[in-house]
């Protein structure tokens, strides 16, 4: 399983980044007289509502989607894990304060949080990364805090503490290895949420500007022509699913090693 997953992921990444060599159509070029063409030898995945070649868009869009989503997920994870660690090991007062902020943030559904952040920061790719990533930090931190607490009460950690190990030492030697699998598993889930949320933002008219190829945007746009031309939404939908599925399998198997 792990080999197949790695193979598929590598193939997808290779094809996506080799896109300029492989495709014949400009992914942005509209063509009013060739809209919603079914898949054919000329357009392998058909054309969309604006007559653009779906294959070109799905490949070019992959670059942007994977980069933006990875950055957003990474931002969310790093900040979230950081906060989770601090809450886990800091004094009760600071922990309570941080938990207060976290719980306050959790009171916004991630999509709404991303919407607010993006409206505040203005439209840009950096803002999109930050908005989508930040929307995940509170829940990441929550999960990590729980993980950290479970580890902190383990006998060996208590023993290490009793022997006067510093906080950094405990984090490095015990907590980080202990939450590693949680971070990996949750990281993949966060990646998925980031992907979904950046797409959902484009459903709301935010996120990536219309026209720019992006799996999420394509999925959102494809819904409008879903009945007449399911292939428009099918390709990005499948790719999102395959990528996350492979990542999940990968993480599962890494865990077991």
């Amino acid at each position: 399983m792990i080999r197949i997953s790695i193979l598929i992921l590598i193939c997808i990444i290779l094809i996506i980044w080799a896109a300029p060599l492989l495709i014949r159509f400009d992914p942005m070029q509209t063509d009013a007289s060739n809209t919603l063409l079914a898949p054919s030898p000329k357009h392998l995945l058909g054309t969309d509502y604006l007559g653009r070649d779906v294959l070109s868009r799905v490949l070019y869009g992959g670059q942007r989607t994977l980069i933006i989503t990875s950055l957003a997920a990474l931002a969310g994870l790093i900040i979230g894990v950081g906060i989770g660690l601090i809450v886990g090991i800091s004094s009760p007062l600071i922990a309570a304060l941080l938990m207060g902020v976290l719980n306050a943030l959790l009171a916004f559904p991630p999509l709404v949080l991303a919407l607010v952040t993006l409206t505040l920061l203005g439209q840009s790719d950096a803002a999109l990364v930050l908005a989508v990533g930040l929307a995940q930090t509170a829940s990441v931190a929550q999960v990590m805090r729980a993980g950290v607490q479970t580890i902190l009460i383990q006998d060996y950690v208590l023993a290490a503490r009793a022997q006067g190990a510093t906080a950094w030492r405990i984090i490095y030697a015990h907590i980080l290895p202990g939450i590693q699998s949680t971070v990996l598993v949750y990281g993949v889930i966060v990646f998925g949420y980031c992907l979904f949320n950046s797409a959902a933002l484009s459903l709301l008219g935010l996120g990536s500007a219309p026209g720019i190829p992006d799996w999420g945007v394509m999925l959102a746009e494809g819904r409008n022509s879903f009945r007449a031309a399911p292939w428009v939404a099918f390709a990005p939908g499948m790719l999102i699913t395959i990528v996350i599925l492979c990542l999940n399998t990968l993480v599962d198997n890494l865990n077991q090693c």
Binding site: T30, A209, P210, G211
Partner: peptide, 28 residues
């Protein structure tokens, strides 16, 4: 949004660049 994407392409053919500012709602 669909209309502006066509406009963008059509204007490009005469050398005009359109920068699109999407707004999510009426307030914006």
């Amino acid at each position: 949004p669909e209309v502006t994407q066509f406009l963008q392409d059509q204007w490009r053919s005469v050398g005009i660049r359109a920068v699109i500012e999407p707004v999510p709602g009426f307030t914006s």
